[in-house]
Write a protein that binds this DNA or RNA. Structure first.
Lengths: 154, 154
DNA sequence: TTATAATATAATAACAATTATAAATATTGT
DNA sequence: ACAATATTTATAATTGTTATTATATTATAA
């Protein structure tokens, strides 16, 4: 079983547009571009990374637009927040149950397949969200040993 | 199997003092009090909560002291960061592998026993930390229905 | 014990990520 | 195309945290 989430085929702009409309989101250039980036690149970017990427194409964009749009997507539940570190909110348009691993050397966040999870009795609790966050080193960084092993806390 | 971590016996101040010294931490009144609070109350408090509690006893304490002390404890690896929400770092002096559930109504964070977790192949990765974060409702809040079911994102 | 050095704390300023606000602009329905 | 409505920009405000520096406390050595 592959640990990294299978890379799905890219979504066309038309598919993104339909998906947003289906989820009760009114259309705009930025909403289209931001969701398209999230669903096709799957790099779990921060708001700032999204801002920088879109800015290359449309320099007029403001950071507030990115924050507003991401908040809207969260409210409409078409993306999820990946909360690996304080002061670094990341976003993921893949909603199926999977974990995340952040490489402490290169900073990239990888999708991790979860075969099974068994919890103790949760009698009386009701669960809405589950997040599994791992920290470590990715194969690439382990190989080139660019990490000095002074693993930071947090 | 009980889902909530078994409540261990309270640590005496002398035990806390020894534990800190063993972990290469120089002694001070605040360090003693802060660790004692974390290990005996186990409420996964925020820095601000710790500040408020200690302030009742010693009004001279500064928030910076709490932040500095928590950072030191993290560096010395005698506490762990519980990163449930952006803008709300919580701290836990229990280091054994367990999950956390945050009640979206009352805000309390509960320890959750994990019976097993099986991940897909992690060939080539090295894992240093695992965090399982759940969000939902605790039995108390479910029962008294003080929560309006408009579950917020994030 | 006293002098000296090292570390801890308080007060404050600085910071970075995010959110709120209000005016300007874009989009949608007619 | 026009009016109504929503989105975006620019900027100010907010929040949690970190950095700085002067002072206080603690540890070490004579």
């Amino acid at each position: 079983m592959e640990n990294i989430t299978i890379r799905a085929k890219r979504w066309s702009l038309e598919e993104v547009r339909e998906y947003l409309v289906q989820h009760d989101i009114r259309m705009s250039v930025y909403r289209l571009k931001i969701f398209e980036y999230l669903i096709n690149e799957r790099t779990h970017p921060t708001a700032e990374e999204i801002y920088e990427v879109i800015k290359k194409e449309i320099p007029a964009i403001s950071p507030a637009t990115v924050y507003n749009t991401l908040r809207l997507f969260l409210e409409k539940k078409i993306i999820q927040l990946v909360n690996m570190d304080k002061n670094e909110a990341r976003y993921d348009a893949t909603l199926s149950w999977h974990g995340h691993l952040k490489c402490l050397a290169c900073g990239r966040v990888f999708d991790i397949h979860i075969e099974s999870l068994k919890l103790g009795s949760l009698d009386g609790f009701e669960i809405f969200e589950k997040h599994l966050n791992l920290k470590g080193l990715c194969p690439e960084c382990l190989k080139i040993k660019k990490y000095d092993r002074e693993v930071k806390y947090g």
